[in-house]
């Protein structure tokens, strides 16, 4: 019965692995290009409409990745592996990232306001920068830390449930 032997031929996993690595690199490249485009456009064309497509690609790609990784149960697996190896827990790391994102966004909005509305006067630029930066810090740090922590706990719970369902199937 040689007919069934063909099925045992394995796929060249090295090529598959390298292709997956390339897809990952392409994804990172697209995200970097879109982010640069958003930053440049927001300084050159302050209207929000001009960056919708880039934001759709960035947010859509991230959402798809997040939903799929929770659905497959790998999010909780990643958290488990991370917590086994690292001194800082994944939840703390998520909160720290929320803080970093908040500071970066506040810096970005501060610089943008100073450049766009400072009228070339350094005193006005510093005033705009500081007022927008401090106000953004107050808003974005609690927002991103909170959203990150809540999303992390929700995603981890759902992912754990998915992983358990897989165990039951096995």
């Amino acid at each position: 019965m040689n007919w069934f032997k063909k099925n045992s031929v394995v796929e060249d996993e090295r090529i598959v692995n390298l292709k997956n690595k390339l897809y990952k690199e392409v994804y990172v490249l697209i995200m970097v290009i879109c982010s640069i485009s958003v930053i440049i456009k927001s300084f050159m064309q302050p209207e929000a409409e001009s960056v919708w497509l880039e934001m759709l690609i960035i947010v859509g790609g991230s959402l798809y990745f997040g939903i799929r990784s929770v659905g497959l149960g790998i999010y909780s697996d990643e958290v488990e592996v991370h917590d086994q190896r690292s001194k800082i827990s994944f939840s703390k790391r998520t909160a720290i990232w929320g803080l970093i994102i908040g500071v970066i966004l506040a810096l970005y909005f501060g610089i943008r306001s100073a450049v766009l509305y400072g009228n070339g006067n350094s005193a006005t630029e510093i005033k705009y920068f500081l007022s927008v930066f401090i106000f953004s810090l107050i808003i974005y740090i609690p927002l991103f830390v909170g959203v990150n922590i809540v999303t992390h706990y929700g995603a981890n719970k759902m992912s754990q449930k998915m992983s358990k369902d897989d165990d039951l199937d096995a």
């Binding site: 394995v10 996993e13 090295r14 090529i15």
Partner: peptide, 11 residues
């Protein structure tokens, strides 16, 4: 025979 590329066996 295995169904992979020569480079894979070489590596």
């Amino acid at each position: 025979i295995v169904g992979v590329s020569r480079q894979t066996i070489g590596l």
